[in-house]
């Protein structure tokens, strides 16, 4: 037990050093603060940033104290852990959807993980206050058992420090891509229809006839290198409306990244009589 009491402070110390350092140096701390429950609790986003940064400094100080076996640091750590627990209880009550803001990239809502982490800090530092020897003396006396305990404790704390959504998976997935290459297609499939639609919707042709188009894209097909896009619309004849088909033909390979001038042809047809209405409805600009 006395060995455990001696070895817990450095473990908690490292955890506090890491989370404290990230809070102090992190540039996007404002965004982290905004996601946390602090602005709601303090009613001021600017104060929330300062509180978060101040907490980081306190964590650093206590972490260094625990590593160098300053007796007061164990008490400080226990108080810090207790304060985290109180904050989490308040945060969960006031803003249950907000994140804990505890570790650097944490954006998940406050859950049992955050409570376990704060509890570990309070308990670890509290037990450490009972230690007789500094950790290096205890370690030197029984190096084998101490190493095993430190390793097990370190793994447990690392797991607690990680966000709940299994963040260890992401580095593994990154590694797999690095080793085996990118698994997704490099796009030999030609120009996606969505790219043609995008080109069309940013074109002068679209601008010209958009007011009579009512539907989204009804259907599309290709013919002789042209991609035909078919929309339904309506035109006003007196007080009545008549349904029309609006057709666009554009180069099947063209996208808005191309540098050449894009030619788009437009046709308008009465859906019932099949009368071609293009000359009546669409005057080519500049003509």
């Amino acid at each position: 037990m006395s060995l455990l009491a001696s070895l817990l402070p450095p473990l908690v110390g490292v955890l506090l050093l890491v989370s404290g350092a990230l809070k102090v140096v992190r540039r996007s701390l404002r965004a982290q603060a905004a996601r946390s429950a602090l602005p709601r609790l303090l009613k001021d986003p600017n104060r929330a940033v300062w509180v978060l940064r101040g907490t980081g400094v306190a964590e650093l100080a206590v972490g260094i104290g625990l590593l160098t076996a300053v007796p007061a640091a164990a008490v400080g750590g226990a108080l810090l852990g207790a304060a985290f627990l109180a904050y989490l209880v308040a945060g969960r009550a006031v803003a249950p959807e907000s994140s804990c803001g505890c570790t650097a990239s944490d954006s998940a809502p406050i859950g049992w993980h955050a409570f376990a982490r704060a509890g570990a800090v309070a308990a670890g530092a509290g037990v450490g206050a009972l230690a007789g020897d500094p950790w290096w003396t205890a370690f030197a006396e029984r190096p084998g058992v101490s190493s095993a305990m430190l390793l097990a404790g370190g793994a447990g704390l690392a797991w607690l420090a990680a966000a709940p959504e299994h963040q260890w998976r992401v580095p593994l997935r990154r590694l797999r891509i690095r080793l085996f290459g990118h698994p997704l297609a490099t796009g030999a499939a030609g120009t996606p229809v969505a790219a043609s639609v995008e080109l069309l919707e940013r074109s002068l042709a679209w601008e010209t006839v958009a007011p009579i188009i009512r539907s989204g894209l009804l259907e599309h097909w290709e013919e002789d290198g042209w991609r035909i896009l078919h929309y339904a619309g309506a035109r006003r004849v007196g007080d009545a409306e008549r349904p029309v088909s609006v057709l666009f033909a554009l180069d099947a390979r063209a996208t808005r990244d191309g540098l050449t001038e894009r030619v788009i042809r437009v046709g308008v047809v009465d859906r019932e009589t099949e009368e071609v209405l293009t000359p009546e409805l669409v005057a080519a600009p500049g003509a």
């Binding site: 404002r30 965004a31 603060a33 905004a34 996601r35 602005p39 986003p45």
Partner: peptide, 9 residues
């Protein structure tokens, strides 16, 4: 809001 701005930037 300010909190919003801190997210959208």
């Amino acid at each position: 809001s300010q909190a919003c701005w801190d997210i959208t930037r």
